[in-house]
Design a protein around this nucleic acid. Structure first.
Length: 565
RNA sequence: GCGCGCGUAGCUCAAUUGGAUAGAGCGCUGGCCUCCGGAGCCAGAGGUUGUGGGUUCGACCCCCGCCGCGCGUACCA
């Protein structure tokens, strides 16, 4: 990609001028069009370190710089910026290469990594709810982006299939199970059982006894527990199918049960953990931020907790897959837990160099800025949320396109509704809390999925209308400002994907696609396509590449497109 | 108390290693249909980036203080 080549050329020039410079910080970025197409501000920082005059350094580097193949001019501006302006011919060559199928403005990573992504993690015997949506959607989008860039991704669903709640569930199952309710609405029935037992103090000991039996391998309880997992997995699969989300593994908490004792023993042996108030804890005396809060790895009743399970999980993943990176896509409220986890792991397995990252996100809020709930104050189930998204989209589609038959409208509504829901989440900075708003996410204007999907159908419509099958990409003409701006924007797709992968922020891609739609709209208004003369094939190519980038970009966000809306 | 995070236009949100005149949508004002999907496009108004200092050629971004909000803070995950 041109951007990359310019950056490499700049790095070579800097290396020649300043042999000891840190080239990893010598970067080239897209910039405000009034300055050019790309900009580097790296020389100002380098000059500062060395107490040099930044403009003189820029001039010296510029003399060594050879980017004539791609750039019309390189200018030194302001305090020492280097501004690059692309040659239209170089832009055209990129478009032609894309037309030949050589690339779609990105290239696979030259250093592929193995990345484990831990996301979604719903609980057995409970409904999936709005609290699972960000993790599921964000984790899936990151998995898709990383895969597209050539990385080896292992998506692992660490479901909650173990814990004290099973004592209550088992007791309820044995004493007050409604078989027919279980057959029709298994999740509701299991939730009912849990609530019934949990609300009755007098059943506490009996529930506890069922838990102990389960833990000691009692056959009947194991069988019931297995059944609960199966029923829950059916629910998960239904939701994941609707969302188009997939996993490579579903290794829940119970998978690590047998390893917990060993983990605890090792932490004791290595003097990482110590007794305190009846529990076994890890203290972080040398870490100013963590010293106040020890982490419990064995409760005073002898049971392990999630820190222990996560350590065992980490050890398994390391042994099994040797990842370069493990991503935990969870709520920001678990930050302390992951800081502790990573700190313990570093002491426990100092030889492991995998990059452990807590990819955390904010909360979904109602308009009153309290956690998003139903009107009656209950958690919103994911199934209901998806239904409503599709239903609302169906209403809009029917309004706008009543002549399509219902099946077609349902299918379009599915694509739009689910897409809107996902995009609303992904287009925000993941660390921000955001306010859930149906009208905003389904709007056809602004930075929304329906707007982007609509932009896609407008392009496709040109091809339908013109009955176009093949494009002759031999003559690219980029005379109009709008053509050139659109073409240049297409060139930046790959860099945006890399930024998403580097910071685990899909909203960068959302912004890019929204800008792409904007550039296309301007082009579409200013430049007739089907009625064009010499430019027709060139413009068709711009349309086609826009559609392909839009479709691919949305696809890695987990969002589908429709030919018509 | 301590820790983490947040505070950007009336509202909802962006802002890519510290980079150039902080950008969108909604709402408001005003334009554009002999034209490929008007579910669209263009323009205008709207900002002391909570606040006071500091570092820097340059700060929404880094450092210190203060105000406000959210979350976490020993046996849930």
């Amino acid at each position: 990609m041109i951007h990359c080549r310019i950056q490499q050329a700049l790095q070579s020039a800097v290396a020649a001028e300043l042999p000891d410079a840190d080239l990893s910080r010598v970067l080239v970025r897209p910039c405000d069009p009034k300055f050019g197409d790309y900009q580097s501000n790296a020389l100002m920082a380098l000059a500062k370190q060395r107490k040099m005059n930044p403009r003189e350094l820029a001039a010296a580097v510029e003399r060594r710089l050879d980017v004539g193949e791609w750039c019309d001019s390189v200018e030194i501006a302001g305090a020492g910026f280097l501004n690059f302006s692309l040659r239209p011919a170089a832009v055209a060559a990129q478009l032609q290469a894309a037309a030949r199928g050589e690339h779609l403005f990105f290239v696979p990573s030259s250093t592929p990594r193995t990345v484990v992504i831990d996301f979604s993690s719903p609980n057995v015997a409970k409904p999936m709810h709005v609290g699972h949506i960000r993790s599921t959607i964000l984790g899936d989008a990151l998995a898709r982006v990383l895969r597209l860039l050539g990385h080896r991704v292992i998506a692992d669903n660490h479901i909650g299939d173990w814990g004290t709640q099973f004592g209550m569930l088992l007791l309820g199952w044995k004493t007050q199970l409604d078989e027919s309710a279980l057959a029709t609405h298994p999740i509701d029935e299991m939730e009912r059982l849990y609530k019934a037992v949990n609300s009755d103090e007098s059943l506490r000991d009996a529930a506890r006894a069922e838990l102990v039996k389960l833990q000691s391998g009692d056959e009947e309880n194991r069988a019931i527990w297995q059944r609960m997992i199966e029923l829950s997995q059916e629910q998960f699969d239904t939701i994941y199918n609707r969302l188009g989300v997939g996993f490579d593994y579903t290794l829940g908490e119970s998978f690590y049960n047998d390893a917990l004792v060993g983990v605890i023993a090792e932490l004791e042996e290595k003097n990482i953990a110590e007794e305190s108030e009846g529990a076994l804890v890890v203290k972080f005396t040398d870490d100013p931020k963590l010293k106040k809060q020890p982490a419990i790895v064995r409760k005073s009743d002898g049971a392990a907790n999630y820190t222990t399970t996560d350590l065992a999980t980490l050890e398994y993943r390391q042994r099994e897959w040797s990842p370069d990176e493990i991503l935990y896509v969870t709520d920001g409220r678990q930050q302390l837990h992951f800081q502790q986890l990573f700190a313990i792991h570093k002491r426990w397995k100092p030889e492991v160099v995998a990059n452990l990252v807590h990819v955390w996100f904010g909360s979904i809020l109602s308009h009153d800025r309290t956690p998003y709930k139903t009107r009656s104050g209950e958690v919103v189930r994911l199934s209901a949320l998806l239904n409503e998204a599709e239903e609302r989209a169906f209403t809009v589609v029917t309004e706008k396109n009543a002549d399509l038959d219902e099946a077609a409208r349902r299918e379009i509504a599915r694509v739009i509704g689910i897409g809107a829901l996902k995009y609303a989440d992904l287009s925000n900075n993941r660390q921000s809390d955001y306010i859930f708003d149906w009208d905003k996410m389904l709007a056809l204007q602004g930075n929304t999925a329906p707007y982007l999907q609509y932009a896609y159908t407008r392009v496709r419509s040109i091809f339908r209308k013109g009955d176009i099958e093949n494009i002759d990409a031999s003559a690219i003409i980029l005379n109009e400002l709008e053509e050139l701006a659109l073409a240049k924007h297409l060139l930046n797709f790959g860099q945006v994907l890399e930024n998403v992968a580097a910071e685990y922020r899909p909203n960068y891609l959302c912004n890019y696609l929204y800008e792409l739609a904007g550039h296309f709209a301007a082009f579409y208004e200013a430049c007739p396509v089907l009625k064009a003369g010499d430019e027709k094939q060139s413009r068709l190519l711009l349309c086609d590449l826009t559609a392909r980038v839009m479709r691919q970009g949305l696809a890695v966000l987990g969002i589908e497109v429709s030919e018509q809306m």
